Computed example of a mutant assay.
Amino acid sequence: MVIKYFGKTCALMVMIFTLILISNTVGYGITISESVPGILVLCGIGLGGLTISKAMSRFIKLPSMMYVVVLAVLLSCPISPVQEQVITLTSNVQFMAPTAAMGAFIGISLGKEIKSFAKMGWKYIIITLFVIFGTFVFSAIIAQTVLKITGVI
């Protein structure tokens, strides 16, 4: 079971790697040789976080994304011995390149579930649009406020 899970996760990472590489190269003009090391680091962090999540799911039920984010923060924080390498390598990967890959996967998953979503009724669609819009707007407001307070902008 663990080998099957690890195989599926690695296959997913290969797809994500490819999408990020294409997005980073075509969309931002960063060469493949500059992109590959950073994308490998990001995929390694993702694979590590997912593996930790799978191992910890026996004890604590938390979202996999939490483990990925915590691992990324630990590897890139100032007390980490690999902080400089992680930041240097991943700085060649544009933030929107992984976002484009993530959007593609979200679109695919929504496409599979659109019929069951439509069965819920038009009220749920309106509520969903308000939730998505509100999340986006309030995230932007919070980001703007924090960046102004800290003097970044």
Results as ranks from 00 to 15, higher is better:
Pro78Gln: 08
Ala104Lys: 00
Gln83His: 10
Ala143Glu: 14
Ala100Trp: 09
Phe133Asp: 10
Ile20Thr: 07
Val2Tyr: 12
Met56Ile: 00
Thr31Phe: 02
Met120Pro: 00
Ser57Tyr: 11
Ala97Cys: 04
Phe136Thr: 14
Ala97Gln: 04
Gly49Cys: 05
Ile60His: 00
Ile30Met: 13
Ala97Trp: 05
Tyr124Val: 08
Gly29Ile: 11
Ile52Asp: 05
Ile127Gln: 01
Ile132Ser: 03
Asn92Thr: 05
Leu75Lys: 01
Cys77Ile: 03
Leu47Val: 03
Val137Met: 09
Met65Lys: 02
Arg58Gly: 15
Ser109Leu: 09
Gly151Ala: 05
Phe17Ala: 10
Thr18Leu: 12
Ile141Tyr: 01
Ile30Phe: 10
Leu89Phe: 08
Phe17Asn: 06
Phe59Arg: 14
Thr128Val: 06
Ala100His: 02
Leu71Met: 10
Met66Thr: 13
Val41Pro: 04
Val86Glu: 05
Arg58Leu: 12
Ile30Asp: 06
Leu19Gln: 07
Lys148Val: 11
Ser53Gly: 12
Met13Pro: 00
Lys115Arg: 15
Val73Ser: 04
Phe133Gln: 10
Val70Gln: 02
Ile52Ala: 11
Tyr28Ser: 05
Ser33Asp: 15
Pro81Gly: 02
Gly103Glu: 06
Ser116Thr: 13
Glu113Cys: 10
Gly111Phe: 06
Met1Ala: 08
Ile60Asn: 01
Thr128Asp: 09
Ala118Trp: 12
Gln83Asn: 12
Ile32Asn: 00
Tyr28Leu: 07
Leu62Phe: 12
Ile149Met: 07
Met15Cys: 00
Gln85Met: 15
Leu89Thr: 07
Thr150Gly: 04
Val68Leu: 08
Gly134Phe: 02
Met56His: 00
Met66Gln: 04
Lys4Val: 14
Gly48Arg: 06
Leu19Gly: 11
Lys119Ala: 15
Thr90Ile: 02
Phe133Thr: 15
Leu89Ser: 08
Ile149Phe: 07
Ile32Arg: 00
Val14Glu: 04
Ala100Tyr: 13
Thr150His: 11
Ile87Ala: 06
Gln83Asp: 09
Val146Asn: 01
Gly49Arg: 03
Phe105Leu: 10
Ile32Met: 00
Lys115Cys: 10
Ile22Met: 09
Asn24Ser: 11
Ile141Gly: 00
Thr135Trp: 01
Thr150Lys: 13
Gly121Gln: 06
Ala11Thr: 07
Gly46Met: 14
Thr128Pro: 02
Ala118Phe: 09
Gln144Arg: 14
Ile153Gly: 12
Val68Ala: 10
Ala101Met: 07
Val93Ile: 05
Met65Leu: 12
Ala101Leu: 05
Tyr5Leu: 07
Ile142Phe: 13
Met13Lys: 01
Leu71Gln: 05
Asn92Lys: 13
Ile22Lys: 07
Phe105Asp: 03
Val73Lys: 02
Ile60Leu: 11
Ala55Ser: 10
Thr51Ile: 03
Met1Glu: 09
Leu75Thr: 01
Trp122His: 09
Ala72Thr: 02
Phe133Ser: 14
Pro98Ala: 08
Ile153Val: 14
Gly46Gln: 09
Thr25Ala: 13
Val26Met: 14
Val68Lys: 04
Gly49Lys: 03
Ile60Glu: 03
Met120Val: 07
Ile20Val: 15
Met102Ile: 14
Tyr67Asp: 05
Leu75Gly: 01
Lys8Gln: 13
Gly121Asn: 09
Leu147Ile: 02
